[in-house]
Each structure stands twice: as structure tokens, then as C-alpha cells.
């Protein structure tokens, strides 16, 4: 990326592009960053990926029709992430799914201060989550932690929505089974009082 001088010779962005970018892109920054963090599992890489996505989005903003900005941005991010991974690891050219394999564990990024309600239940959920395979953990992160819809998660991972649903449901079932193994399934269900 190149920084332009902000003085007289800087060709100003069109007012429409600036307005569209501020309307459609900036409000999605937090979701973009959370998603980037899930994809890269590294804060610095996540920031770089968001910046790359912002630049690509701005170049394309005048062709964007204004519908589903999040899905549009996540598709851009997915492509940017694949390109970044290919530059780092040319051997991954034929298997972009492997670009998502990272070693950092969820438990390492979540401190005990985050466990605010029913710590035994939460600790067991966290343990079970950490034991999930990367594919399963990733969909749980995207949907349950980052709040993406199934289709949005499918778009960013480049898999069918049925795959997201299958992985997500099986992942939660494993967490649920882990709770049952520790006697926390029925007893813990009631105190928290989550409502439908």
C-alpha cells in the first residue's frame, strides 16, 4: 500500500466513493476484525488482513450495489486471505482450506476474567471448545463468537452453507456431550435462565 501526500497533488477520492465507503464499510469494521482474527489467529496478521480488505473494498466500492455489504466485504476478505496465504506458502496453492490451519488455541486468548457467569459450566464449555478440530472451532468462532449468519460463514470459508451447518451442529453437540460427561448438561441448563 502506498501513502499519498495529503497536500495539493493528492487526487481526491470521489465524494460518492467516500460516502459509500463510510456508509457500507466502516460500520462493519468490528465484524471484519473479529473475522480476520478467526482466520489468521494472530492479531498482527488480522490487522493487515483488515487493511488489505479495506483497500480492496475501496477500489471496488463504486461497483458495489449497496446490497448485503457484510457478505460483500467478507468475500473480499476471503479472497485477500487466500492471496496472502499463497504468498507466504506457495505450496498451499492447491488447498486453500489449509491456509486456515493455525496453532494458536482459543484458551490462550481467553482469560479467566471473561468467565462471568457460572464458571464451572463456562470452564467446561471452554475446555470442550479448545478440544474441537480446527474446522469445527472455526465455524463456532464465526457464528457463535462473531455473530455471522450461516451463509456469511459459508462465504468467508468458501464452503457450502450445509457444510457450515453440519460442522457447527456437530461441534456444539460435542460440547454438549462434554458437558454431559461432566454432569453439567441438565443441572447447568436452568440457572443461567437463557430465554428463547
Amino acid at each position: 500500500m502506498t501513502e499519498r501526500p495529503t497536500e495539493v497533488d493528492s487526487p481526491a477520492a470521489s465524494a460518492d466513493a467516500t460516502e459509500a465507503f463510510n456508509r457500507y464499510v466502516i460500520p462493519e469494521l468490528e465484524v471484519m476484525y473479529r473475522t480476520a482474527r478467526s482466520l489468521t489467529r494472530n492479531q498482527t496478521d488480522a490487522e493487515d488482513l483488515v487493511q488489505d480488505t479495506l483497500l480492496r473494498a475501496f477500489r471496488a466500492i463504486e461497483r458495489f450495489d449497496g446490497r448485503y455489504p457484510r457478505a460483500w466485504l467478507l468475500t473480499i476478505m476471503r479472497n485477500a486471505n487466500i492471496n496472502r496465504a499463497r504468498k507466504k506458502r506457495p505450496d498451499l496453492l492447491d488447498d486453500p482450506d489449509l491456509t486456515f490451519e493455525r496453532s494458536v488455541d482459543f484458551a490462550e486468548t481467553t482469560g479467566p476474567e471473561e468467565l462471568v457467569v457460572d464458571p464451572t459450566f463456562d470452564a467446561s464449555v471452554t475446555d470442550a471448545f479448545a478440544e474441537l478440530s480446527t474446522d469445527f472451532r472455526q465455524v463456532v468462532e464465526l457464528v457463535d463468537l462473531n455473530g455471522l449468519a450461516y451463509q456469511e460463514a459459508a462465504d468467508i470459508l468458501g464452503v457450502p452453507v450445509g457444510t457450515v451447518m453440519s460442522r457447527l451442529h456437530r461441534a456444539r453437540k460435542r460440547i454438549r456431550d462434554h458437558l454431559a460427561e461432566h454432569g453439567l448438561d441438565s443441572a447447568a441448563a436452568l440457572p443461567r435462565g437463557a430465554t428463547r
Partner: peptide
């Protein structure tokens, strides 16, 4: 249903915080 809701609530509660400076 309550078990699954509590799992979802627990997971979202455990969401790693975002540094406001980064954002």
C-alpha cells in the same frame, strides 16, 4: 433447548475482547 442456549451464551461470553485502540 436450554442446554444449547446456555452453550451459545457461554461461548459468546467468552468472546475474546477487542482492544479499542486496535479498532
Amino acid at each position: 433447548s436450554s442446554v444449547y442456549q446456555n452453550i451459545r451464551v457461554s461461548l459468546s461470553t467468552n468472546k475474546a475482547p477487542i482492544d479499542p485502540v486496535v479498532l
